[in-house]
């Protein structure tokens, strides 16, 4: 009878709060990569420009931003060419935004598949973050191309040594986007109101995330409180600093951002874990 004790797994009403179940996620790693592949391959199928769309969107946004904020509104970007300033901001912001909005409707979008078969639900948001990372990589490529173009044409921009921390910056963005997305997706299963909040909330958030404005513009006018508590503002300002050598970086900002990212990420996992078992009954 002894062997009746070594159960492979147990199905219980609630998950342990911090039970990440990494072992199971690891077992399903092939699925994770297949989802990433699916997302990347199928998005632009039957389009003429294909993956070029990845580049067109940030480029056009940056052109418009440059036109409005720098040419018309005369916002000073320091020594950085305004277009490059905006492109750097837009690229980072896009990654965060895509992670957030795509994970925020994980449960709603996948209810057909989740309603039929079990696999660790967290695979879905993880695959979103990873496939967006590939997209982000392509966009970074175009940023670098313009970077080289500006350097060659005599601009005085130089990266700082802190560029080595850039992977950590990406990690922070991913954790923030994923964490927030998981929190929202868990709550959307019951309260659909949040879907509306996300769509316009993200748009408003962009204006206080220093995507198209430098930190000092806020500071000079005494409005720094509007961006000081927004981790994304610090991330974008910091990434511009490491890439272009211009920007305001504070210890508070760095610590605050790292701490918030971690808290949001783990909170997201906890809430997601609690929801994944029974969301199918309430969605």
């Amino acid at each position: 009878m002894d062997k009746n004790k070594d159960w492979l797994y147990e199905i219980t009403p609630k998950n342990n709060l911090f039970d990440l179940n990494l072992k199971e996620v690891w077992r399903y790693r092939d699925l994770l990569f297949l989802f990433v592949k699916r997302d990347v391959v199928t998005v632009y199928k039957q389009t003429i420009l294909g993956p070029l769309w990845y580049l067109i969107q940030p480029l056009f946004t940056s052109v418009i931003f440059t036109l409005i904020f720098n040419t018309i509104a005369k916002i000073d970007t320091g020594g950085i060419p305004p277009f490059l300033f905006n492109l750097a901001g837009v690229t980072s912001w896009n990654y965060f935004r895509e992670c957030l909005t795509a994970t925020a409707d994980t449960f709603k979008k996948n209810q057909a598949i989740f309603g039929k078969v079990y696999f660790p639900r967290i695979i879905m948001p993880m695959s979103v973050v990873l496939s967006n990372l590939m997209k982000f990589g392509i966009q970074i490529g175009i940023l670098i191309a313009f970077y080289i173009f500006y350097v060659a044409s005599g601009s005085l921009i130089r990266p700082t040594i802190y560029i080595l921390t850039f992977p950590l910056v990406i990690l922070c963005m991913a954790m923030l986007g994923l964490g927030l997305g998981m929190i929202i997706s868990s709550m959307v299963t019951k309260y659909r109101d949040l879907t509306f909040l996300v769509s316009f909330g993200v748009q408003l958030l962009m204006y206080v995330s220093l995507v198209n404005l430098p930190y000092k513009e806020f500071k000079e006018r005494g409005y720094e409180w509007a961006v000081d508590y927004n981790p994304m503002a610090h991330i974008i300002e910091f990434s511009r600093y490491v890439l272009l050598g211009e920007g305001t970086v504070s210890y508070f900002g760095v610590l605050y951002t790292v701490a918030t990212s971690l808290v949001v990420f783990f909170l997201g996992i906890v809430i997601f874990n609690r929801t994944e078992k029974t969301f199918i009954d309430t969605i």
Binding site: L8, E10, I11, T12, P13, I113, K116, Y118, K277, I280
Partner: peptide
């Protein structure tokens, strides 16, 4: 098949469970 959780109680298993109703998911 772990699609939804029970309200109370537990299920213990020694093997992986799969179901033929998931065709084409």
């Amino acid at each position: 098949s772990k699609v939804t959780g029970p309200t109370t109680g537990s299920i213990k298993t020694k093997g992986r469970i799969a179901s033929l109703l998931e065709v084409g998911t």
